[in-house]
Write a protein that binds this DNA or RNA. Structure first.
Lengths: 309, 309
DNA sequence: CGCTCGATGAAATTACTTTTCAAGAGTGAG
DNA sequence: CTCACTCTTGAAAAGTAATTTCATCGAGCG
């Protein structure tokens, strides 16, 4: 709360209206008010949100008084007129709403309303992003970016939800002219991995760090001299043994309704985005034109709808 | 707050005005606006507090436009008129003041350090989540969840990055025992869509709302009587014509290095997660056991836990 | 009992908002 | 290049809400 000092030369007038101090003002001034005005003041103080939706006439009716009284009350409370009181009321309501429902850190329950679900999910994913960003080792990221940027060929391994993240990465890298492929089939992945050599990069994504189907191909690539990167929530997991660079994702606690796959995905995607932007920066000369080219190539796939200019 | 109109019939008003979703709404709708309206919208979004103090005439002057344009813009943003926009502005200003930390979203530049990239990306994605959550119409979500929970069969259409989101949704729904399939091939998608009947659900994901390859199958499903849902950043796009329920994702401004696909994906995933949780809640009796079953089925795919060195 | 004075709301006035409409700007076809 | 068309835009009319005015009412007091 920034209290405006009286000394400020901006306003030569008596006093600026009150923001959240409305309830206090009502209590202070109530005794000096007439009965009708008290009714108005109390109504306004007890239900700011509701009153903010009302016009002078509406509020007059609701309080069983007249428009004139409402305006008089507004003046008494320090506002130039009802219009401004109404604005303050809206502001107050918003403040109350914001302050009233702060901690939605609770787990999502079966009987939560959908509005709660939305709020909690957004909250959790935001937290997850913050955690991931805080926990990411920039040195490792730097190394991984370098490896990717200079890679002759990139293989990405991931299964299940992690495979989607892998696809996302591969799609992006392809767009800036790198040769990347996301493997889902463990057998094919291993088959491919043994083709890799020094100068190639293999990247594995697994939240648990123990997914055999992902570890195997990474190990094969590692053994054949490729640079290996692991994106995992368990930097101490088995996969770490075969990874040159480890990027750690945050592992939020999971609940019954919200399996780990959900937050790990958010976390993994952030890491993948960071990798992508990093690589795009390093290869800007070729990446930028490639990006616009791919964008234009898709233009005709959208219905015309030329609406703006 | 407790003001959820549960008992009331789901589809009542088109869309209630937005409280904190204003910035998001401006970004989403800006492309469809005319130049003058964009000026108004931007002014309003960048200085809610200042604009809340202005009358129509004042705001018109400040933006160098006319009263009519200001009113038009208010309407476009979802309010009945300027009066209500002004109220929302006051509320928003109060919220921002209370929340303290304003958005400090600098664009990612080519010469940013990787640490900066990580921080900015995380920040942007968090903002994107908040915007999406704020702008999501819970009534529509409710309707979509109901449709999905009772569906005999679910088809999901999406291309490119949106297809990954579609796969994510399909994977999740399969896990709780629903029959869902994510289509990537537009031809197969249409072929499948015409098989749908009343009681089936088709869900299309497209950021632009104009992706022909996604619109076609949804339209086919719509024409054959299936319940159709669209997840799009452009609720006024062509796809809206064939969607029974529209879930709006927020579209952050894109920059050269950060294509729209990136933030739209984050936004879409949140919506998808909300859908999933919502459906899981409604079908809890069957969903919970199905979830643990799928979890256990994968257990042996992980190396034994005794690995810690 | 009646006079005075503050409180109050109906109605008039004013301020603000919304709507209408015609002119201007841009676009595409011929 | 021009014409016809559509979309955009602001000036002004029309309408609505807020404010002021003013007459009435009623309580307190001599």
């Amino acid at each position: 709360m920034k209290e405006t000092f009286k000394g400020a030369p901006a306003e030569s007038r008596p006093a600026p209206p009150a923001p959240a101090a409305l309830a206090a003002k009502v209590r202070t001034l109530a005794p000096t008010m007439t009965r009708s005005m008290q009714r108005v003041a109390e109504t306004v103080a007890s239900d700011p949100a509701g009153c903010a939706a009302l016009t002078v006439t509406g509020l007059a009716e609701r309080t069983g008084t007249s428009e004139a009284t409402v305006v008089r009350t507004s003046r008494m409370l320090g506002y130039p007129g009802y219009r401004d009181l109404r604005l303050a009321l809206a502001a107050l309501a918003a403040q109350q709403a914001a302050g009233g429902a702060p901690a939605v850190t609770a787990d999502i329950a079966v009987d939560d309303s959908l509005a709660d679900v939305v709020a909690k999910l957004a909250q959790e994913e935001q937290q997850c992003l913050a955690d991931t960003a805080a926990g990411l080792d920039v040195t490792q990221l730097e190394a991984a970016v370098s490896a990717l940027a200079g890679a002759r060929r990139i293989d990405v391994y991931g299964i299940g939800a992690s495979h989607l993240v892998g696809q996302d990465l591969a799609q992006k890298l392809l767009r800036i002219g790198l040769i990347a492929h996301a493997h889902a089939d463990p057998h094919l992945a291993v088959t491919n991995a043994v083709q890799l050599r020094t100068g190639d990069v293999a990247l594995a994504i697994t939240h648990s760090g123990r997914t055999t189907d992902v570890i195997e191909p990474l190990r094969a690539a590692f053994d054949h001299g490729a640079t290996t990167i692991a994106i995992t929530g368990r930097p101490d997991g088995e996969i770490a043994s075969y990874a040159d660079h480890i990027l750690t994702t945050s592992s939020a606690r999971e609940s019954e309704l919200r399996p780990a796959a959900m937050s790990s995905r958010t976390s993994q995607l952030l890491v993948v985005d960071c990798l992508f932007i990093g690589v795009a920066q390093r290869t800007y000369e070729t990446a930028a034109p490639a990006l616009s080219a791919s964008y234009e190539a898709l233009a005709h796939r959208h219905s015309p709808r030329t609406h703006q200019r």
